[in-house]
Amino acid sequence: MRRYVIGRLVQAALALLGVTCVAFLLVSLSGDPAFILLTPEAGESQRAAFREMYGLDRPLAVQYASYVGHVARGDFGRSFAFDRPALTVVLERVPATLELAVAAVVLAIAFGVPAGIAAAIRPGSWLDRAVMTIVLLGQSVPTFWLGLLMIRILAVDLRWLPVSGRGTWGQLVMPATALALWLAALLARITRSEMLESMAQDYVRTARAKGLPERGVTIRHAMANALLPIVTLIGLQIGTLLGGAVITETVFAWPGLGTLVFDAILRKDYPVVLAVVELVAAGFIVINMSLDLLYGYLDPRLRRATA
């Protein structure tokens, strides 16, 4: 087990290094921050001094080596735009992103999974067709459109909810719903198909033959076996949401990582972009490792195989 964990950690470190390298190259090649972050009133001498101040006048390879060296010591550099430590700038936005991601995932699970199970229990029924219609809508409606529509109806016309921002529960409702809809639809679809497959297995027939009540069959036998792909999907989606939901955050002026990194890319604020990329990559790696451990818990066969 220890060797397994060490192996995974080495893999993780290599993955992070690779991500850093690609991200660094992409952002460095995309333009000169001195032309964006200083107004055009600044002359060439001010722009040259700006590049020198942040070491942008050095060869790319030197910049990269120096960057990796600093990051290894926990120093992500200073944001060019905010002139504050990039990591501080990024960490300030993490709570908002986490709050939105957790709310959206909880909502999606609460609606998506039961809907998928309900649809699978009686395939072809009106309930199944209703669920699948909603799923189709949920997956095809663009988030920004849904967001603007909700704002128009719920906030402007009916005045039930505040339009945008963060701070009160009311401000969380619309962005979380907009973000959850797509995910709930995805979960409902996967849950339904996994459940249908699981319900057709021998162990379900055996359970029924033993005379177990239908609810027990559905939950304890069919559902337990369908969980693995569902859990994987949820884990990966949480990983994606950690990077911030740019569109949802933009529409609802939600102060998360998505809007921060979007602006940082436009402004060529490399330290902030890179800090976000690394944080998200690290988050993904942690989630993947947790999923592996969770599989063992959910599936006794995997547990025995690793032991």
Binding site: R159, V163, G165, V251
Partner: peptide
């Protein structure tokens, strides 16, 4: 001073009185 990146959202906030 509030920071609302999307112009349609800014307009909606104004209409809603936010």
């Amino acid at each position: 001073f509030r920071f609302i990146p999307d112009s349609s959202t800014r307009a909606a906030e104004l209409k809603a009185g936010g």
